[in-house]
């Protein structure tokens, strides 16, 4: 396989009463080896569920109704959606790890950090001795720049700060040298100064370990700092995808443009903070036409009648908008 991860035609549905409601619609994504891939969009666009689907962690009643997720594992290519529970457990934490938005609630409050780090090792190396596990855990804590790692090992979550906890979560996630790290809004719950430190840490670790990262965020600033490729999600679809440089220089989709305008920046003239009017339509309330039409400043009549196809408007730059071509989604 050329890519590390290939998602094809992924559809996710949920149950609302007795009705099946689509939450994710025909998503295609390819993550190259040793690459940081950004996924950006507002809440409820389907970013997180895509990441959860990769690890088979969708909460009931969400489920993958169609599609394929192929992954180039240490021992050959795998179709993640076809794995047995046991095979999937071997992938989780060892091949693909995940870190979450809320570091404060991501560690089990009643166990020590040490126990939870050892656990991550022992699930995949059942015969590893205590001494070796301790050494490995300390090494990881040092690598994520935790001061006083020995003391931290015997701490509980409530004794540590959010930034420290997210470092520990990263240490746990990387303890088995995974090839892919899914980072679901890893800095959203942190102070701005801590955010920058965590992003730098993730960048450094990625360089050292050749780990690919899928960075899920609603913050284009985070994407700019950490990613090479980016996909913009809107209402369960990809609306634009390109390299980060291309996306920022030749922004094509009105939604992406809106997101960019909504980024706060220091310096520059002071102005009222821009917001995109309206909210993301929830699953089940999507129109036939372009799903962004109701909030789009450049909406035309055509946009309400048919859905634009995701087409290549420049080499490696995909966009789903009639402003850049008349092709209609099949």
């Amino acid at each position: 396989m050329e890519n590390l991860l290939e998602i094809r035609n992924l559809k996710i549905t949920t149950l609302r009463g007795k009705n099946t409601v689509r939450l994710l619609d025909k998503v295609d994504l390819s993550v190259k080896k040793k690459c940081s891939f950004g996924v950006v969009g507002e809440s409820g666009c389907g970013k997180s569920i895509t990441a959860n689907a990769i690890l088979g962690l969708l909460p009931y009643p969400l489920r993958v109704s169609e599609g394929s997720i192929r992954y180039d594992s240490k021992d050959g290519e795998k179709e993640l959606l076809a794995l047995s529970k046991k095979e999937m457990r071997a992938v989780r934490g060892q091949e693909i790890s995940m870190i979450f938005q809320e570091p404060m609630t991501s560690l089990d409050p009643i166990f020590t950090v040490e126990m939870q780090m050892f656990e991550a090792l022992s699930f995949h190396h059942p015969h590893m001795g205590k001494g070796e596990m301790r050494e490995r855990a300390l090494e990881m804590l040092r690598r994520v720049n935790i001061p006083r790692p020995e003391q931290t090992l015997s701490s509980y979550a409530h004794q540590l700060s959010g930034g420290q906890l997210q470092r520990i979560m990263i240490a746990i996630a990387l303890i088995n040298d995974p090839r892919l790290l899914l980072a679901d809004e890893p800095t959203t719950a942190l102070d701005v100064t801590i955010q920058a430190q965590i992003l730098k840490l993730m960048n450094d670790l990625k360089e050292q370990n050749d780990t690919s990262i899928i960075m899920i965020t609603h913050d284009l600033g985070v994407i700019a700092e950490t990613c090479e490729e980016v996909a913009v999600f809107y209402a369960g679809q990809i609306v634009e995808q390109a390299s980060v440089v291309e996306l920022f220089q030749h922004t094509a989709h009105p939604y992406t443009l809106g997101l960019l305008r909504a980024v706060t920046s220091l310096g520059g003239e002071s102005r009222k903070l821009y917001t995109i009017p309206g909210i993301v339509p929830p699953g089940g309330q999507w129109s036939q036409g372009c799903r962004f039409a109701d909030r789009c400043e450049q909406c035309r009549e055509q946009c309400r009648r048919a859905m634009p196809a995701l087409r290549e408007i420049a080499p490696g730059h995909l966009c789903r908008c009639f402003l850049h071509g008349e092709e209609v989604e099949a």
């Binding site: 457990r89 609630t105 409050p109 995949h124 979560m169």
Partner: peptide
């Protein structure tokens, strides 16, 4: 969240 995090570590 920590239950999901435990599962994500590959816990049985």
């Amino acid at each position: 969240d920590y239950i999901k995090a435990v599962r994500a570590k590959g816990a049985p």
